[in-house]
């Protein structure tokens, strides 16, 4: 199998892209940890994240992260088989529920992050 197999077809490329999302997301979470640990040096030692470079990095990570969420939640909907009263829940409904949960979770977290900033 040639090692560049994933460049030969769009579908394969998108798959590799999906798998690759893990790397930028990991880097971003490591940064988050680093920021949190910065709190240990007290009010004077803490530098809030404001640099343009960081924003640019976050934009890139956000794109990967959204791609991960979209693909993962959609595929999770395909594989889950839930029976209620002996009837199969159609996977459309499951996917819809997944995306709904995504919206709710995002709203709650955004609320916490913004509300407690006052």
């Amino acid at each position: 199998m040639p090692l560049n197999w994933w460049t030969r077809q769009r579908h394969y490329f998108l798959y590799m892209l999906r798998e690759f999302t893990a790397l930028p997301m990991a880097l971003w979470l490591i940064w988050l940890l680093y920021e949190i640990s910065g709190l240990r040096s007290g009010a004077h030692g803490y530098t809030p994240p404001r640099s343009g470079l960081f924003v640019a990095f976050s934009v890139v990570v956000l794109l990967f992260s959204l791609y991960h969420s979209y693909t993962f939640l959609k595929l999770a909907g395909v594989i889950m088989r839930i029976k209620v009263l002996d009837r199969q829940i159609p996977s459309r409904v499951i996917v819809f529920t997944m995306f709904g949960a995504w919206a709710v979770a995002s709203a709650v977290i955004a609320f916490v992050l913004i509300w407690f900033a006052r």
Binding site: P49, F54, V55, F57, S106, L113, I114, R118
Partner: peptide, 24 residues
């Protein structure tokens, strides 16, 4: 990560630093 990551990155990585919204 699918449910939670995008909002963290959006709010803490972009909106906060740009000053669009106050962030903790």
């Amino acid at each position: 990560t699918a449910l939670l990551m995008p909002v963290h990155v959006l709010v803490q990585g972009i909106l906060g630093p740009l000053g669009v919204v106050p962030v903790v």
